[in-house]
Design a protein around this nucleic acid. Structure first.
Lengths: 202, 202, 202, 202
DNA sequence: GATGAATGAGTCTTCATTCAT
DNA sequence: CATGAATGAAGACTCATTCAT
């Protein structure tokens, strides 16, 4: 196994265990046992336990950003309605979180304050998401799709909280029951669109 | 200081520290230092560190339930509109969380999986909240106020996630900036009511 | 055993082991086994292994300084000859080192560079000794007892090196054979006094 | 690079690092990084870290012995005075130590007891030096140059300690300031010769 | 011979918990 | 009840050494 593969393998095992037991209850011993490697090997690829965890999170955040950018590129922005746009945004977000349930579990369960060293990382991530949603709302306002008098700050948090909670519920908590992303997305839209979009006058 | 008061004092100090640094980063040493008591005294009132933390959470959950029941009692259910009802429910929830920001911080930041021993507690709490919201939605449907075709399970999670996130944002993260509960509640309602309530035909 | 006694006890055991095996080959395990205490107890009294070692050295240096000052006080400077003065100075130094052979072993064997954290401590100590000797030589010159054209810097090092080596040889290396401090001191003086003192003209 | 050269190269790098940081604080990692070789290569030339260090010391001791023998050969014993003889002996010793300051630093800083495995080596070395000096003193006595009543054991240690300390001071501690071996040697002789040599009767 | 990833025994340090005073 | 010194299991991390390529 080459260096790249070995590092990825360790990350993979660590991710699974962190997701299952959390940062503190996961020992290096657990990881090396699961990865079938020696104790020292972990430290060949990572500075320490923190570094391993942070690497996991940073990979997630990087992937997340790439996924968002990619998804935006794939949207035919000229020819879709505002509703179609928001549908894709939300569905893609859910799809991304669903794709890696371990990371989803880690990220969504983790709160600011878990560990001083992780705080900055998480805050940066949360701020980015809020800005993303706020940006979409702003654009919606400019295009006349979103109510002018909406409280963007609060609504961004409302949507972010809703998406995280729903992701956690369906992808982590009820991970074994079937669910359909299209349906989930539509159900979400049914609830929030009427309150966000300007009502169509006949 | 009598036994009751001393126990409350320890809980108070522990709460502050848990809120600030999280469960694992808060040491018994920190607590006894803050409470100005001897190391052994903690163990006179609590089985162990877990017990201290769990007591804190259970007190919170008990208070929460009492608050909800009390608030319901205070509502003149016969003479308020569905919108007025939901306004009070949400505002009271926010008010309760706002009242004790340390506990708010602990509860809202804490995720399932942090510690196996706390999982049941948290799950029980989350289930209760979801049921509460689902119950309200159900009643709304029966009274013809809420859309019959709403996905109750998903919407409960949506609302719960939104409320938690908003509480965390305003009461913990931006705890120093001013905010008005009536305004927050109204802004939330503006977003979710149109999608949940049946549209009024003229 | 009270705190003071316990700390002294740990220092005592650590000293013996450090003297016997050196800093690196002495484990905390060895110390606690020798002191018949629990692992954690060491850390109640000392930050870490370094701190334990440094405390030992600092105690030594403090005692050393006190001993020197005390010995000076006890000298009847008005009524003793220069030779008597230097006799007492050297004998007292030897006596001090002889009194605690473990510490003598540690201090005399330890060189600059053993450990970055200890360097400053040792340098400070060595500088002080050199200055002490240089000071005595200076006074001797002023009083017309010591040759004016002596190289004070070199001679200080010569005397310091000689004393340390002789102490190590008799008190550590040959610790079990008998020796007499008066004789040793006189033998030293026989060698160095003729080269340092001005020759008495008749 | 052939085997011989590579081994010498490793020794060279190791010496520098051991001199700078000591045995324990110098890691194999540091050495291979400095020598720009692979980890395993060290073990192709040396059994282990100890062996590397011991080789360094043994080389030093061998060179030392050769140098002493060579220097003796170069002395015209028939036609130099006792004072000239001792001048050369001391100057050559200083010159040898000055020539390789890294080794000088290692050897002079290292004490018995640093590491059980090195103890024998060091003791052997120290014994040899003491015997050398004692031998010279003995010869001096036989030739009537050295006082008959001198304490040879103590004086050997006195001279050895003085030379080591002075070497360390000028060649390691003050390595950057200029100094002159002839002057240093003469200053040493000025101090010790009057006490060692028999006084010339007129 | 050279390489460097992998190894794992060995150490220090932490911290919740206990218990004699 | 309160105290706080003592405990020791548990866990992170180090680093000399090995060995397959």
């Amino acid at each position: 196994m080459n260096a790249e593969a070995r590092k990825a393998h360790i990350l993979q095992c660590a991710k699974k265990l962190f997701a299952e037991h959390g940062y503190y209850k996961t020992q290096i011993s657990d990881i090396i046992q699961d990865a079938k490697i020696a104790r020292g090997t972990v430290y060949q690829y990572f500075e320490n336990k923190d570094d391993l965890f942070v690497t996991l999170l940073e990979n997630f955040y990087d992937d997340w950003e790439k996924a968002i950018a990619l998804n935006l590129d794939n949207l035919d922005l000229q020819n879709i309605s505002a509703k179609q746009y928001i549908f894709h945004r939300i569905k893609n977000t859910l799809a991304f979180l669903e794709a890696d349930r371990d990371l989803c579990s880690i990220v969504l369960r983790m709160g600011v304050g878990l560990h001083k060293d992780f705080d900055n990382l998480i805050e940066r991530f949360e701020k980015k998401i809020l800005n993303l949603i706020a940006g979409d709302l702003q654009i919606g306002i400019e295009y006349g799709n979103v109510r002018k008098d909406i409280n963007i700050e609060l609504t961004s948090n409302l949507i972010a909280g809703a998406l995280f909670r729903i992701s956690y519920y369906y992808f982590v908590y009820k991970k074994n029951s079937s669910h359909n992303l299209d349906n989930i997305t539509n159900d979400i839209l049914d609830v929030i669109i009427p309150g966000i979009f300007v009502s169509k006058k006949k």
